[in-house]
Simulated assay, not measured.
Amino acid sequence: MHPDAWHLTEDIDGFHARAGSFLRSRPVLHNTPLTVMEKWRTRPGAFEPGSVLFGRLESGDEVQAVFYRPPSRRLTLTPLSPERADALAAHLADSLGHTLAGVTADHDTATAFAEAWQRHTGATPTLRVRMHLYRLDTLTPPHPHPEGHGRIVGEQDHEHLMRWCRELAADLGESVTIDAGSWEGTRFAEKSYTFWQSPDNTPVSMAGVNPMVAGMVRVDPVYTPARLRGRGYAAAVTAEVSRAALAAGATELVLYTDAGNPTSNALYQRLGYRRVADWAPYDFAYAEPEAG
C-alpha cells in the first residue's frame, strides 16, 4: 500500500463527507471516532479549525480506514493490517516528524502501528493499559437487585456530578481540571448522566452515556465512590442507562473496560455485555537529543 493512498486534511467537513459512511458502517468498532466526530461537529466551541489532522485510506473509490490526531497528539486509528499500519507510520514519520504522543486502536492495529513507529522514529512505545470492548447482546437486569431507583442528573446536580468526575479522573490517574470553568472542555461534558439513588434519595452511583450516533450509544463513565462499592449499585445504574438507551432507539450499546479489573468485567458480562475486541492505548517516549 503506497503512502499516497492516504489523504490527509484539516477540513473536518470534507473529511466527514468522505469518511462518514465508512465510520457508520461499523458503529461498534468505530464507536470512538463516531462520538468524537459528533461532538466536534455539533457542540459549539468543541472543535478549533486547524487543530486536528484527519486521514483516510482509500482503495479505488472506497474508504478503507481512517485516523485523527487531535491537539493531544494521540493518534486514533480504525483497524489496519500490519502492512498498512507500517505504511502509515512511515508516511507520518516523513510528513510530521516525531510529533505523536501515542496511539489508540484495537489491540492488533495499535501494536502493529506502535512497533512500526518505533522502527521509523526510534520512539519507545509503552502499553498504558489493556482494555476490552464490549457490546450488549441481551440486557439481563442484575440479580439480586439493590434497593433504590435511577434518576436523570439535572442542572441542580452539577456540583455533585463534577465532584464525582474529579474522583473518577483521580482514580484513573488522569491529570485534568474539572470545575465550572473547565467543564465544557472536558471529555465528560457531552454526556448525559443518571444517578442510582438509595431509597432515601441519596445518590450512590452514576453512569453516563454519549449521544446516540448511527444507532450506537457508548456507556461511559460508570462510577461508584469507593466506600459504596460492592453493593450492586454500578450494575443497577448500568442496567438503567442501557434500558433507557434501548427504549430511545439504540441498536448498539458498547462500553470499554480495564482488562485487569475482573470485578467490572464480570459485572458487565452478567448484564449481557459480550466482549468483541481487545483495545490498546500506547504512549510514545523519545530519547533526549544529545547535547552539542
Rank of each mutant, 00 (worst) to 15 (best):
R151L: 09
L127M: 09
L57P: 05
D137C: 04
R24D: 08
Y233F: 15
P146G: 08
P82N: 11
L88R: 04
P33M: 02
T138S: 15
L136Y: 02
R130D: 09
A116S: 14
W196A: 03
Q197F: 05
G185R: 12
H98I: 07
E174L: 02
L253V: 05
L96K: 08
E252M: 02
H7Y: 08
Y256F: 15
P44M: 14
R56E: 05
A110V: 07
P281M: 14
G230H: 01
R243A: 11
I178M: 12
R119Q: 12
Q269C: 06
W183A: 04
H91S: 07
G50T: 03
R231E: 12
P3G: 08
T257Q: 01
G150N: 06
A248H: 11
Y68W: 15
P142D: 02
T238F: 00
G97T: 02
H158C: 05
D200M: 06
E48K: 12
A189T: 00
V241E: 01
E167C: 06
M212D: 00
N261V: 10
M206G: 07
V213E: 06
S59L: 12
W279K: 03
Y268F: 15
M162P: 01
S72H: 10
G45K: 04
E252N: 01
A5M: 10
R151V: 06
Y68E: 09
P262T: 00
W183L: 05
T177I: 14
P82K: 08
L246N: 08
A277E: 14
